[in-house]
């Protein structure tokens, strides 16, 4: 699988996939998509990168351990739930805030950050699994 073409095109494909995954994740609340799908797409990108360039390079490029990302995701998702406790509502009550940027406005909400947390968990866990398996494979060869 270490062909020149694959190695050359992989970074481009991966970059597109990663951006696309973020897009899919963020638009999830109103269009098809969401944290689960986005996370899976991103994890696939990492898996492909691992195949193309070796696990070491992926790990260096990621800078953070994928499982740490997953942990961050769980914390983020749980944290958005805790936030509503400060408004004297039950755990995980949604809070919405409309951020005005002159012309347009961006809706910030706890469910959105929750979904981002899901994204990180799926992304982190699945890419950790894929990278671990690929690393083992390299050892065997």
């Amino acid at each position: 699988m270490n062909t020149v073409i694959f190695r050359t095109t992989a970074p481009v494909v991966i970059a597109i996939m990663l951006v696309f995954s973020v897009f899919i994740c963020l638009r999830g609340h109103n269009e098809p998509g969401g944290g689960f799908i986005g996370g899976l797409i991103a994890a696939s990108a990492i898996a492909i990168y691992g195949m193309a360039s070796g696990v070491d390079r992926v790990r260096r490029a990621m800078r953070v351990d994928p499982l740490a990302l997953a942990g961050f995701g769980v914390l983020l998702a749980a944290g958005t739930g805790v936030l509503s406790l400060f408004t004297a509502s039950p755990f995980m009550t949604g809070i919405w805030y409309e951020l005005n940027l002159g012309e347009s406005s961006v809706a910030l909400s706890t469910p959105m950050f929750f979904d981002i947390g899901v994204y990180f968990v799926v992304f982190g866990s699945v890419s950790a699994i894929a990278l671990a398996l690929e690393a083992g494979r390299e050892e065997d060869l």
Partner: peptide, 17 residues
């Protein structure tokens, strides 16, 4: 089903390993 798919994938990976 959406959650079920992801969880069964995790389970599948675990059992595979």
């Amino acid at each position: 089903i959406l959650t079920a798919i992801v969880i069964s994938f995790a389970m599948f990976s675990f059992l595979l390993v």
